[in-house]
């Protein structure tokens, strides 16, 4: 199981919630060779979904060009302080992880 994500979410006076997510993932490109010259197989997050109150507020498809330990930030309307926002990622090996944060 992968390490937890770090998620920060805060709503501003205008009712816009800014979410910042830092994931823990190797994001191996599949282009790199190890010491023996063999290709290191690609291993990367493919799908990311963020939900608030059961509604998807962002979904993403990623390739291996996303940097190691991916960072993501986005902004959405309609949430209030104290609400939860959930983020789920799934990688190309089928591993997945969901974490949740309370909106400040």
């Amino acid at each position: 199981m992968a390490d937890p994500m770090r998620i920060r979410a805060a709503v501003d006076a205008g009712g816009v919630t800014e979410v910042k997510v830092l994931m823990s993932h190797e994001m191996e490109t599949g282009q790199r060779r190890d010491a023996a010259g063999a290709l290191v197989p690609a291993w990367f997050i493919q799908n990311v979904t963020a939900t608030h109150a059961g509604k998807t507020v962002l979904s993403a498809q990623w390739g291996p060009a996303i940097a190691k330990n991916p960072f993501l930030s986005f902004r959405f309307k309609g949430a209030q302080k104290g609400d939860k926002v959930q983020v789920t990622w799934v990688d190309n090996r089928g591993d997945k992880r969901t974490d949740e944060a309370t909106i400040a």
């Binding site: 816009v16 994001m27 490109t29 282009q31 509604k55 998807t56 507020v57 962002l58 979904s59 993403a60 498809q61 990623w62 390739g63 291996p64 060009a65 996303i66 940097a67 190691k68 991916p70 960072f71 993501l72 930030s73 986005f74 902004r75 959405f76 309307k77 309609g78």
Partner: peptide, 29 residues
Amino acid sequence: LVEKNPNVLAASFDIPAGTEATVTTRVKM
């Protein structure tokens, strides 16, 4: 998209209604 990467597409985000059309991430080049 990064033109000179081996595969040009880095990420694609779907923006539902109510989400601002602003995303930030980090890519490899």
